[in-house]
Design a protein around this nucleic acid. Structure first.
Length: 235
DNA sequence: GTTGGAGAGGCCCAATCATA
DNA sequence: TATGATTGGGCCTCTCCAAC
């Protein structure tokens, strides 16, 4: 549940470890699908919960239904499937049905996915409780397929400006949040990773950049400000 | 077998909001 | 209004998988 509400997954603002623990202890929530049945009245009855926060939470839960298929896939918590692998899988399998029906050999054909991860994904979809969960999430209105417009751009990498480029973000950007910058880069065909390596094409640098800047300088990786990144995205 | 990089978890600090 | 609980955001480190 904590993984599901975390920022890289469904990003339900205001819901953290303590709140999740209370919901479980009070028998209100048993699975991530139960989160979508929560109301302000139910939340208001919890400890340290005011009307304002309860309303904010209900709004954040509703917002999470607009998160793309790749984030939902990451949120499912399948072993070895983090945000990057979830993105790769969502590109190859644009809907949950396609991924659920895929054989391990199909899953393994995705660059970056090996036998171990393919087996983990395949096994996850064979568990009846997980199949029920998918049905409930679908009924709740979550995004379990890539939107048509997004699919089109992904299917034609040459049509997007940052196709094939790998970015790393460090520090705090002036106007964009990290996940916003990440989303913009991905929509333009680029890839965002967490660690700097020889394969990194650009380091996007914000205020109070950390050790990633130092490593990028050692490797001679070009650095971009937020403004320069936005210029690239406009090209 | 080696290397690169993703996943996972922890730490720290700032911000937010309920409570007293 | 001050205080404390909780969450958000960013970074670091270690482990382990995939690719070469």
């Amino acid at each position: 549940l904590e993984h599901w509400v975390s920022r890289d997954a469904l990003d339900i603002n205001g819901m953290g470890e303590k709140l999740v623990q209370q919901l479980v202890d009070r028998d209100v929530v048993h699975s991530v699908a139960d989160i979508y049945d929560l109301t302000t009245d139910v939340l208001y009855a919890l400890e340290r919960m005011g009307r304002k926060l309860a309303e904010k939470l209900v709004s954040a839960i509703a917002d999470s239904k607009t998160k793309p298929w790749s984030r939902v896939l990451y949120g499912l918590g399948i072993r070895h499937v983090g945000s990057v692998n979830a993105q790769l899988l969502s590109e190859k399998f644009p809907s949950v049905e396609q991924l659920a029906e895929a054989k391990t050999t199909d899953i393994e054909s995705v660059y970056g996915i090996g036998a171990e991860i393919a087996s983990s994904v395949y096994q996850w979809f064979r568990i009846p409780a997980n199949q029920t969960l998918i049905s409930r999430l679908k009924a709740a209105g979550l995004q379990l397929a890539v939107e048509t417009l997004y699919t089109t751009s992904l299917q034609d990498p040459a049509s997007v400006s940052l196709a094939g480029k790998t970015f790393v973000i460090t520090g705090t950007l002036p106007t964009l949040k990290r996940d916003e910058a990440k989303e913009l880069i991905q929509k333009a065909g680029g890839k965002v990773t967490d660690s700097v390596s020889k394969k990194t094409d650009y380091l996007v640098v914000g205020e109070e950049a950390g050790s990633k800047l130092e490593k990028a300088q050692q490797l001679g990786i070009p650095q971009l400000s937020e403004a320069q990144l936005l210029e690239m995205l406009e090209d």
